[in-house]
Design a binder for these strands. Structure first.
Length: 149
DNA sequence: GTTCTGACA
DNA sequence: TGTCAGCA
């Protein structure tokens, strides 16, 4: 699987200057330097004292910008980004093992609508269920279906 | 032309 | 945080 390596290299090696990052994210250069001073973001160490940012950092900057536009303070946005990061990592780790036989039934006209079949789960008393996730614009919820034997 | 730091509002 | 100065 070479795509994994490509992604790793992409995130590791691509460097974007402060002017470009500012243009892309809508965060001013002044803000980027201030955020750095506060320890919220970290540019790549560079030889000539000129900042450059990797993709991860640009994504973080974009996230913080979104939160600020939503009305959060910078500090609150940073806290939320850390919580989100941890949640996503835990979720990712869980799903990597748990989704081995995961099946997705897509809606034909909407790629983010359909049913996720997580497979079978069991309760402590031996009852077996099928767990499904309902995904559509109106709702995102779990459905538990008992398997009769 | 671009980025950097420092300073003032 | 915006802006301007004076450099590199």
């Amino acid at each position: 699987m070479q795509s994994k390596k490509i992604f790793r290299d992409l995130f590791k090696h691509i460097e974007i200057g402060i002017g470009e990052v500012s243009k892309i994210t809508g965060v001013t250069q002044r803000q980027l330097r201030y955020w750095e001073e506060k320890g919220y973001i970290e540019p790549l160490s560079t030889s000539k004292g000129v900042r450059s940012y990797n993709l991860q950092t640009v994504i973080l900057i974009a996230f913080l910008k979104d939160q600020i536009d939503e009305g959060y303070t910078l500090a609150a946005a940073v806290k939320k980004s850390e919580q989100t990061k941890q949640k996503m990592r835990m979720l990712s780790e869980f799903m990597r093992e748990a989704n081995k036989d995961l099946e997705v039934i897509n809606d034909h006209d909407d790629e983010t609508s359909g049913i996720i079949k997580f497979g079978e789960i069991s309760s402590d008393n031996g009852e077996r269920f099928e767990l499904e996730g309902i995904v559509n614009p109106e709702e995102k919820r779990f459905v538990l279906k008992k398997i009769e034997k």
